[in-house]
């Protein structure tokens, strides 16, 4: 077992464990914290695959900004109490079974696909800012600008909804 594999298994286990914790914790604040752990694990996978830029962005945007936003909302509304009424048992199990079925079915569907190796440490610097930046501002400059408009409209929308 090489170092890469050890790291891979560790990160995978961490991601799955914390994801399960996200959906099982009663206190929403814990859910948020476990979700941040999950994101860190996924960022670790990004680094493992030479996608350094995405790894950083993931941590900054998701773990840093979005999750903080979630926390803010929770704090502002004072929802960190464990007062959430449970769903009834029947619906709870049906949800779990449905989710599990989905996983099994998709995995089973992909069983027959041809195996392909992802060379984790192969050379290549496509994940670096230089390469991605060149592509982003050349081929993808229009979507990039449009996404700025999307942000503007989202901001306006959030303000309008929040003011009501």
């Amino acid at each position: 077992m090489s170092t890469t594999e050890i790291i891979f298994w560790f990160l995978s286990a961490l991601a799955i464990f914390s994801a399960i914790m996200v959906i099982t914790r009663k206190n929403p604040v814990f859910s948020v914290l476990y979700l941040i752990v999950t994101f860190f694990a996924i960022s670790g996978h990004y680094i493992l695959m030479n996608a350094q830029f995405l790894a950083i962005v993931n941590i900054i945007v998701y773990a840093g900004a979005i999750m903080v936003l979630f926390l803010f909302v929770l704090m502002l509304m004072n929802l960190n109490k464990e007062g959430e009424p449970r769903k009834n048992r029947y619906l709870l199990w049906s949800g779990v079974i449905a989710g599990g079925m989905l996983m099994i079915v998709i995995i089973a569907a992909l069983q027959t696909s041809k195996p392909e190796i992802v060379d984790s440490f192969s050379k290549g610097d496509i994940g670096l800012i230089q390469n991605l930046g060149m592509a982003l501002f050349k081929e993808y400059v229009v979507p990039f600008e449009i996404s700025s408009i999307l942000f503007l409209s989202a901001m306006v929308g959030a303000v309008v909804i929040g003011k009501k």
Binding site: K87, L91, G95, V105, I106, A108, A109
Partner: peptide, 21 residues
Amino acid sequence: VGNYVLLMVIAIILLIRLVFY
């Protein structure tokens, strides 16, 4: 909303089942 999502997931499962098997 929860029930709708549940139905949606079940439908997706059935769809994948149908397409791949």
